[in-house]
Amino acid sequence: MGKIAFEQNQHPKQKPDQSKLGFGKHFTDHMFIMDYTDGKGWHDARIVPYAPIALEPSSMVFHYGQAVFEGLKAYKTSDNEILLFRPDKNMERLNKSNDRLSIPAIDEEFMIEAIKELVRVDADWIPVEEGTSLYIRPFIIATEPFLGVHASHNYMFIVILSPVGAYYAEGIQPVKINVESHYVRAVRGGMGSAKTAGNYAASLRAQVEAQESGYSQVLWLDGIEKKYIEEVGSMNVFFKVNGEVLTPELNGSILDGVTRNSIIALLKSWNVPVVERRVSIEELFEAHANGTLEEAFGTGTAAVISPIGELNWDDKNIVINEGNIGELSQRLYDTVTGIQRGTLADTLGWTVKVEK
């Protein structure tokens, strides 16, 4: 793969107002593309103007769902340096998703360098206002024009960039969550541990119904017994019970989140007890009843920390920490975002500098 070709965008777009970015609405002037051809491997790495892509209607991604993606961010520090947060973990996980969907592996080190180069090209798009960042979306799609169920022989790897605002425009507010007892997101042996488009499509119906009932998101239970907690929306989930932090263990149907991994590492470095194990919904409601359920929060790239203020399960409703963000949740949010933006010391070696 080696060298990355570059084509300058001759018609750059007007940059959006940083105070009105929203999330995932605006896209920069350039994108990275690399092709895969069976027998040739990954080739023709290039940075080109952001533009529509041409695919045949018979491209296999449209019919058999071979599509994986990642999400990470770039930040500008007060010294105008550009930092990425743990891109090695994203590329490692992308290859795990590739393996599950029979997509050829990528060279992880090369792709980190390619992302750095793309971010350098569009560095002027990185917003600097509080809570903003440049969202990076790498994804791979099957492009072979063929109707028949087998792994594609051709793929495109694309990276696009999007300047985004704070995930919560009015600060972090605990959200109301409905415990989903009917629909299933994923099962062990399926694709729950891969970051693939189909998992998110499977979650939409339950999310729509939850929002129609006044809830922000869904707490997913396991797909077999409908008893054990898995994820909240598209995020990993944590509970502080009697001074100990619990999170569902990775069981083959739960995504190995980069933020999840970071939160566990931080808690251990602070000597806060953290345990990865099966957590039942009954156990959680019992902990609330006896006064030991102290905090609950989701973790993910977009929001970092999303506090849970209420849970509804089988028409039983509980309020956690009086509907307020917990002290530990706030500390975790402040620490991760501080490391990401370079305002706190990165003692764990997570940030990667993008040299100018």
Rank of each mutant, 00 (worst) to 15 (best):
N261Q: 15
V245W: 07
S216I: 02
I254F: 07
G252A: 06
S262E: 07
S213I: 00
L221D: 09
E209N: 15
Y215K: 00
D222L: 05
G214F: 11
V241A: 00
E209I: 04
A265F: 03
Q217G: 03
W270A: 09
D256Q: 14
S234P: 06
E244L: 10
G214C: 13
V258D: 03
L255S: 08
L255Q: 06
I263N: 05
S262C: 10
V208W: 10
D222R: 01
K226C: 11
I224C: 03
Q217M: 04
G257R: 12
V245S: 02
I264M: 15
V208T: 14
S216T: 14
I263P: 03
D222Q: 05
Y215S: 00
S269H: 08
E249H: 09
G233Y: 00
G252H: 04
E212F: 10
E230K: 15
V208R: 13
I264Y: 09
L250A: 04
A210T: 01
K268I: 05
I229W: 00
D256N: 15
L250S: 06
K240L: 15
L267K: 08
I254R: 06
L267S: 07
E212I: 13
N236V: 14
L266Y: 14
V237F: 01
W220Y: 10
N236H: 13
I229N: 01
I224S: 03
G243D: 09
P248F: 06
Q211L: 04
S216D: 12
I229R: 01
L266T: 07
K227Y: 05
K268E: 12
Q207M: 03
E212Q: 15
S216Q: 12
E230N: 13
Y228H: 06
W270G: 07
D256A: 15
N251D: 14
L250E: 03
Y228N: 05
I254P: 03
N236Q: 14
S253I: 08
N271T: 11
S234E: 02
E212Y: 12
I224W: 01
G214R: 12
G257T: 10
F238T: 07
E244A: 13
A210Y: 04
S213Y: 01
S253Q: 14
G243V: 08
T259G: 06
Y215P: 00
T259Q: 08
L219D: 01
Y215H: 06
E249W: 02
N242S: 14
G223C: 08
L221I: 12
V241L: 01
L219M: 11
N271R: 07
K226F: 15
E209W: 09
